[in-house]
Design a protein around this nucleic acid. Structure first.
Length: 476
RNA sequence: CGGGAUGUAGCUCAGCUUGGUAGAGCACUAGCAUGGGGUGCUAGGGGUCGCAGGUUCAAUUCCUGUCAUCUCGACCA
């Protein structure tokens, strides 16, 4: 059978950046807006985000957190309170200077993140050890005035959830930081089928104002890394700056220990770049707005559409099923839903109806199978599971192929050119070497993985005694 | 914020060198045939040529500025 696919999408190998842009727009995820760096998330893209959001929100609630909503604006003085924090964010905040035609006496920033708002609130509601822990989360939009933008990966305004918690002890906060990193890992690996490396950010890369930052890092098809979620142990720095204190059981005044953690619409960019192929998007079944698209064949013939709609109703009990009964050609529909990454296509035509069967085509491999009607539900569930697992395994295999070890700078540079991806190298722990590696190779430290190995004895850069293994890569 | 590229119909682009009042394909609308991988034919609708100035009798075309998008760096999720 001759296979002709859409030529609208640039091939990955030819131009990965263009491929990405083609996919996000052709798959109807977004449209560009009239505001620089801001995107319109279209129904299909938003449905994808809603699925991710629901899965994550359930996990956040299951770990004892409550959702709240904080204001969009932060007074300048409030943002100033934590020194490192303001230094980190000041260059990229949007300012509100006027209300109507009147100049404001104090400028407001449009939140780039809400640590200070939560802190300002926590100082009012936390007084006793009995008030702890406070486990809050909010779903919101934030604004960061970025220089260069790309849909999902870096936009001026983006959607996310940000968790902000306050604990009695450093250990409790540390535990929370780990817990939420694990929640993100679970979401990425089991829902989005994206394998991640868990670890800690270096001092240079950690969150402004944090004691330390945990991160999950994933690897894209082009060998570039993407930070997919972060969980920060804020220590008591913010508590001291904001005066968030409680009286412990012994009657002593103590500062709280805080965490914050976030996951953004950027994860959609990761999903696209991890699973997508030259035909477009590939969405893992658990995240897919439509898991099964029914394409009727010769739908003008009597009974075909009725049959197809009956199937839709029946299958809707086990999956998210949709039907395209438009008068477009079947071939057009095949390509359209492949471009949109729908995991399974169900073809049903007069021949199938006659034989009590349908055709199932899977997006990940392109395989088609004929399935008898009486075992359709069971086969469909099996197929969706299989696709989910296959996508994860494929992504894991790709990451492993693109992960290399380097003991010297020459090796490091060779790997980066010959097989771009994660490079595992030992590091002395000095900022100087980290900076030098970035300057010479363009790669940055992605994380100090929790699962440490010793791939050599000395720092890849300076040759002195190495302290730890670091994952390095060029990153988005 | 620096380098490069590009803005003409919903989309992809031609036209601009040498100024003279707007083109194609796809998409859209109607009809007929077709229908298991972007189907064919016929007819039709659609554009203040990114925006603002300037030069000119006349600007999509030349000049200046500006905005936006893509891209490569620097910065960040």
């Amino acid at each position: 059978m001759a296979k002709e696919f859409v030529k609208e999408i640039t091939s990955m190998d030819e131009d990965f950046a263009q491929w990405y842009t083609d996919v996000v727009t052709k798959a109807d995820l977004i449209d560009y807006s009239s505001v620089r760096g801001c995107m319109i998330i279209r129904p299909y893209g938003y449905a994808l985000w809603e699925n991710i959001k629901t899965e994550l929100d359930n996990r956040i609630k299951a770990t004892g957190h409550e959702n709240v909503y904080m204001p969009l604006f932060i007074p300048e003085s409030l943002l100033q309170k934590e020194k490192d924090h303001i230094e980190g964010f000041a260059p990229e905040v949007a300012w509100v200077t006027h209300g109507g035609s009147e100049e404001l006496t104090e400028k407001l920033v449009v939140r780039p993140t809400s640590e200070v708002l939560f802190c300002d609130h926590y100082k009012n509601i936390i007084h006793s050890y009995r008030d702890l822990p406070k486990l809050y989360n909010q779903w919101a939009n934030v604004v960061r005035w970025e220089k260069t933008t790309r849909p999902f990966l870096r936009t001026l305004e983006f959607l996310w959830q940000e968790g902000h918690t306050a604990h009695a002890t450093d250990e409790d906060a540390h535990e929370e930081t780990t817990r939420m990193l694990n929640v993100y890992t679970d979401l990425c690996e089991n829902v989005l089928a994206i394998p991640v490396v868990k670890g800690q950010k270096t001092e240079k890369e950690k969150f402004a104002g944090a004691k330390f930052t945990y991160t999950i890092e994933s690897l894209m098809h082009d060998g570039k890394a993407l930070q997919s979620g972060t969980s920060h142990h804020l220590g008591s720095g913010f508590a001291q700056a904001f005066g968030i204190q409680y009286t412990d059981q012994a009657g002593t005044l103590q500062y709280v220990h805080q965490t914050s953690w976030g996951l953004t619409t950027r994860i959609i960019g990761a999903l696209i770049m991890v699973h997508g192929d030259d035909r477009g998007l590939v969405i893992p079944p658990k995240a897919a707005p439509t898991q099964v698209m029914i394409v009727p064949i010769a739908q003008h013939k009597e009974g075909v559409l009725d049959f197809a709609f009956d199937l839709k109703e029946k299958l809707s009990k086990v999956a998210r099923v949709n039907i395209d009964a438009s008068d477009k050609k079947p071939g057009w529909k095949f390509n359209e839903y492949e471009m949109k990454g729908v995991p399974v296509r169900l073809e049903v035509g007069p021949k199938d109806i006659e034989n009590n069967q349908v055709v199932l085509a899977r997006r990940d491999t392109g395989d088609k199978v004929i399935v008898a009607l009486d075992e359709l539900e069971a086969k469909l569930i099996e197929l969706l599971n299989d696709i989910q697992i296959n996508l994860y395994n494929k992504a894991l295999k790709l990451r492993e192929e693109k992960t290399s070890v380097a003991a010297t700078m020459d090796e490091f540079k060779e790997n980066l050119v010959g097989n771009p991806g994660f490079i595992k190298s030992m590091w002395c722990g000095e900022r100087e070497c980290e900076d030098k590696i970035k300057e010479e190779t363009g790669a940055t430290s992605r994380c100090i993985p929790f699962e440490q190995e010793k791939v050599s004895d000395t720092c890849v850069c300076c040759g002195k005694e190495a302290k730890q293994l670091v994952y390095w890569a060029k990153a988005y």
